[in-house]
Every structure is written in C-alpha cells, then in structure tokens.
Lab assay of single mutants.
Amino acid sequence: KKYKIKVYVKDKKTKKWKKIKEIEVDTKEEALEAIKKLPPNYEVKIVP
C-alpha cells in the first residue's frame, strides 16, 4: 500500500494554495518522516 504526500505552498500574490510536489512512500512512518523535513510554511496532505 502506497501513500502519496501532496505538498502545497501558499502563493503570496494570489493567496491560493498551489501544489508544488508529490512524494510517494510505502509506509505511514515514512510519510511522517518526510513531512518533518519540509519547511513549516508548507501545507501537506497524506493520501492513502
């Protein structure tokens, strides 16, 4: 079972969220580790 991490950042001009990358991992633990490495201003969604 794979997890997709969708990473969004808020556009300063439009104030809208835009997706900047998608990370695919195998476990939820890996997903949480990957999220920890991202800057705090990123919004993250984990999709099972």
Rank of each mutant, 00 (worst) to 15 (best):
V25A: 07
T14G: 07
K37R: 13
K45R: 15
Y8P: 00
I23S: 02
D26N: 12
D11I: 06
K45E: 08
P39S: 12
K21A: 13
I23T: 04
E24K: 05
K10S: 03
Y42Q: 06
K10N: 04
L38E: 02
Y3W: 14
A31I: 14
V25E: 01
V47K: 05
N41E: 14
L38P: 02
K12F: 10
I20P: 00
K12S: 10
K21S: 11
P39R: 10
I35M: 08
K28N: 07
I35D: 00
K28Q: 12
I35C: 06
V7E: 00
K13D: 08
N41H: 15
W17T: 01
E30Y: 03
P40T: 07
P48D: 13
V7A: 03
L32H: 09
K18N: 05
I5M: 05
K1C: 12
E22T: 10
K2C: 08
K12A: 11
L32S: 06
V44N: 02
K15S: 09
T27R: 02
K16Y: 05
P40E: 07
T14S: 09
E29H: 07
T27W: 02
E33L: 11
E24I: 13
I20G: 01
I35T: 04
A31T: 04
P40G: 12
V7Y: 05
E30S: 05
K21G: 14
E43F: 15
V9T: 07
I5T: 00
I5N: 00
E33G: 05
V9P: 00
K28D: 04
P48T: 14
K10F: 15
K19S: 03
E43L: 15
K6E: 15
K19C: 11
K19G: 02
V25W: 03
K1T: 12
T14V: 03
I23C: 09
D26G: 09
V7I: 12
Y8G: 00
N41Q: 11
E43N: 13
K28G: 04
T14F: 04
K37E: 09
W17P: 01
D26S: 14
V47W: 12
D26V: 05
K18Q: 07
L32P: 01
L38N: 01
T14D: 04
K4C: 09
T27I: 02
V7G: 00
Y3V: 04
K10L: 10
Y42L: 10
W17F: 06
Y3N: 00
K2W: 06
K21T: 13
W17A: 01
E29D: 10
K36R: 13
I20K: 04
K12T: 09
K16G: 04
E33H: 06
A31W: 06
L32I: 11
L32N: 07
K15F: 04
K18G: 03
V7N: 00
K45A: 09
K19P: 04
I35L: 09
K4T: 13
K6P: 01
K13R: 13
K37W: 06
K1Q: 14
P39N: 11
P40D: 07
A31H: 01
K28Y: 15
P40H: 12
V7T: 01
L38C: 05
K16R: 11
P40S: 12
T14R: 08
K21R: 12
K16V: 05
K1R: 11
E30C: 04
W17D: 00
K13F: 10
K45T: 12
K28A: 09
K15P: 02
T14Q: 05
P40R: 10
P48N: 10
I20S: 02
W17Y: 09
K6H: 14
E33Y: 04
K1H: 14
Y8N: 00
Y3E: 00
E43P: 05
K10E: 05
W17E: 00
E43H: 15
K21D: 12
K16Q: 07
L32G: 04
E30Q: 12
K37F: 06
K10D: 01
K45I: 15
D11T: 06
K37T: 10
V9S: 06
P48K: 14
K12R: 09
V25D: 00
K36E: 07
E33C: 08
I5Q: 00
E29W: 11
